[in-house]
Simulated assay, not measured.
Amino acid sequence: MTAPLRLAVFDVDGTLMDSQEFIIEAMRRGFAAAGLAAPEDSRILSIVGLSLVEAVSALAPDLPPAEAERVAALYKRSFIDLRAEKGGEASAPLYPGAREALERLAARDEVFLGVATGKARRGLDHALRAHGLGHFFHTTHTADEHPSKPHPDMLLGAMRRTGVAAEAAVMIGDTTFDVAMARAAGMSAIGVAWGYHDAESLRQAGAAAVIDRFEDLDDALHALWQARGATA
């Protein structure tokens, strides 16, 4: 009997790759270039996953929209500069077990893999190329091509692209934005405890499971797919 098609969509920053040094420093530089005091590091990490303008607006809610767009552009410029200074996004490490988890899932003919990220297309392409991950993914969706998380458009696009129904699709991410996006798309979500939002916040947002290491992902996916009737 042929197994039903399934879809596992991954966030990038804070889930597959630890980009916090890049993100924090680029945001500091962006705010400084605009003549503004930089937010605390913990606040910067709390908005990872949002589109840039939305992220800046969340960090500095009193900024006029045009100024938020200017700071976002300065952040983007700073991130590009940092990438050049540090030798590319290969200097932002993958989390332990990330590559092996992708390899295991990619080896299963019935499983499609996707990406839904707050990165722009250019940044995602750099990251996937730097770590040699691009060949794993059947569908990739970025914040400059879709509405910002937690709007479900990225996940709806992934399901359309692969032909997988919501009950057989799962979002894997480290933020409440990922969980809310999945719920809005009718999908389940698995939170990861090593990222930028804490495990309890992920559970309260509606994550069906929160894992502490990538080695636990296969069992968590199996349990969700079985519960939603998506197993063979």
Rank of each mutant, 00 (worst) to 15 (best):
A127P: 08
A207R: 15
A72I: 06
A180N: 13
V179H: 07
V115N: 13
I80H: 08
A55E: 07
R183V: 14
A168C: 15
K149L: 08
V192Y: 13
A106R: 15
G123S: 12
A143C: 10
M187A: 02
L45M: 13
I44P: 12
V53K: 14
A60F: 08
P39G: 02
D13Y: 04
H135E: 09
F10G: 03
L224R: 05
T175Y: 07
H151R: 12
E100H: 12
R213L: 11
D198M: 11
R122T: 02
V56N: 10
A84L: 13
V48D: 03
S201T: 09
V210A: 03
A107K: 11
Q226M: 09
D198H: 14
A90Q: 11
R203W: 03
E100M: 12
E103P: 10
P96L: 01
F79E: 00
P150V: 00
A205Q: 07
A60Y: 10
S148V: 04
R29C: 10
A143W: 13
G118V: 08
V48R: 04
S148M: 02
A209M: 07
D144Y: 10
G123K: 08
E25L: 04
A116E: 03
E69T: 14
M181F: 15
V9K: 13
H141Q: 05
G157A: 09
D62H: 03
E100C: 10
F177Y: 15
L82H: 07
L217T: 14
G87I: 00
A130H: 02
A208K: 03
G163D: 08
R43I: 09
A205F: 07
R213K: 15
E215L: 06
G229F: 08
P4T: 03
D18R: 09
G173I: 15
S78T: 08
H222N: 15
V71C: 07
D81R: 14
M187C: 05
M17S: 04
L133Y: 04
R28P: 04
A92D: 00
H131Q: 07
L224Q: 08
Y95H: 01
A32P: 03
V192S: 12
A193M: 06
A208E: 03
D13P: 12
R203L: 05
G173S: 13
G49I: 01
I80S: 04
F137D: 13
A227I: 01
A60H: 12
I44E: 03
E54Y: 09
A166D: 00
A180G: 09
V71Q: 07
E110A: 07
S42V: 11
M187P: 04
M1E: 01
T142A: 02
I23H: 01
T162P: 10
I172F: 11
A208V: 00
R6E: 00
R160F: 02
G191E: 08
R183E: 14
S78R: 07
L45G: 10
A227H: 01
T162E: 03
G191V: 11
I24F: 10
E100L: 13
P152I: 02
A68N: 11
I190C: 09
R160S: 00
G134P: 10
